[in-house]
Design a protein around this nucleic acid. Sequence first.
DNA 1: ATGTTC
Length: 466
Amino acid sequence: MNGKHITKLGFTGADIGLALAAASVREDAGAARDDILNELRAVHASPAQHLTGVYATLAASLQARAEQDALHAHDALRAQPLPYRVWGAHLIDDGAFAQMNTAMRLPISRAGALMPDAHLGYGLPIGGVLATQHAVIPYGVGVDIGCSMRLSVYALPAASLDARSGTELLHRHTRFGAGVGWEKRDRLHHDVLDDPAWNAQPLLRHLFDKAVTQLGTSGSGNHFAEFGTFTLTHGGLDLPAGEYLAFLTHSGSRGFGAQVAGHFTRLAEHLHPHLDPAARKLAWLDTRQQEGQDYWTAMTLAGQYALANHEQIHARVARALGETPTLTVSNSHNLAWKQVVDGQELIVHRKGATPAAEGQLGLIPGSMADPAYLVRGRGVPDALHSASHGAGRQLGRKAAEKTIPRAEWKAYLAQRGVTLLGGGIDEAPQAYKRVQDVLAAQSDLVEVLGQFQPQIVRMDSGSEDI
DNA sequence: ATGTTC
């Protein structure tokens, strides 16, 4: 009996040695070679039947290998990405295409689309839309679960608020910065804090206190709170066409959502150890299993929390102004939705993409000094009822800091009369694609109803405090 | 995006 005999029976790797060892025990016991070979053949065919006795170790190893192979086969990527449509391909870098191609090779993917603001992200590109079946990808939603926009339009002339009063109001009634929350005496209650989902998982219970503290705050990065002039070009939205004072915010689910995202991304990666390294950050959770259902519960709560967060920011500002907004619009742009696609219910991930079903209102911001647009969706099926979530970066943060001259950044603001509170050069308008180009590339996806020109903008100050 | 990563 030698290795050649064993290999011929189909044993591989460490199983060859285990088979040889078992065979020699049988030989010592006086078994005939043909009988041993038949026994080995039987163990190879059905290891589950031989988990005790002389072949036990070999059978266990075979069984583990089979389970691993099954898992690997289940996770294998398609040879070619499924086809998907792209809007504004001339505005999109190669890295974003490569990430989308990988996403469309996932065995769970069914459809997808790339928006004109697309750029590199973790896993799915920012500006990526992906429909999957029975699966949700934490990094297909993104780190800032429920990141969203909200606009309040006041039936007041745009000039009702001067730069000085607006500045003071923003300083007093908005909070920026990583880890930042409201002092206990300044906190407001919101029904989202009474959601029973907070008690559905130890993780959510653990994050509740942080969520209470941070409700009504703006965070950091590209998040902002700004006053500006809103020009409504279409009537019929509770307001006649015209120019108005308005308040616009971009914020998300803060530390709560970030920790939910981190937890479930690690869990998904752990559950797919054999996933192709190129798709590692696209690891998914099965929505028919507990892990996927837990993520869905947590993600939904984070989405609600983010909207509540905006509501409080706007409520504080409205109270300080002593006014009530006449028109309010909001939309999430980092979330997954259950959506019927070609007659089948799928999970549609929008990671930096605005829902744009027929008639649905949305907000697409440009940059700290460029207009944000109020849009109405046209419900294009190939875009999975989506549009861009903004202008999209054309320079990464580090590249922006290195290449944009400070004077050009300040000149861009000055030319548009923008007062900036906080904010860094990594968020300079020059770091973003021109939002007008991005809108032009998706005119078939959304109709523009109005535009908002920022005037007093607050962002996180980073290191240089204000 | 987040206050600091299985």
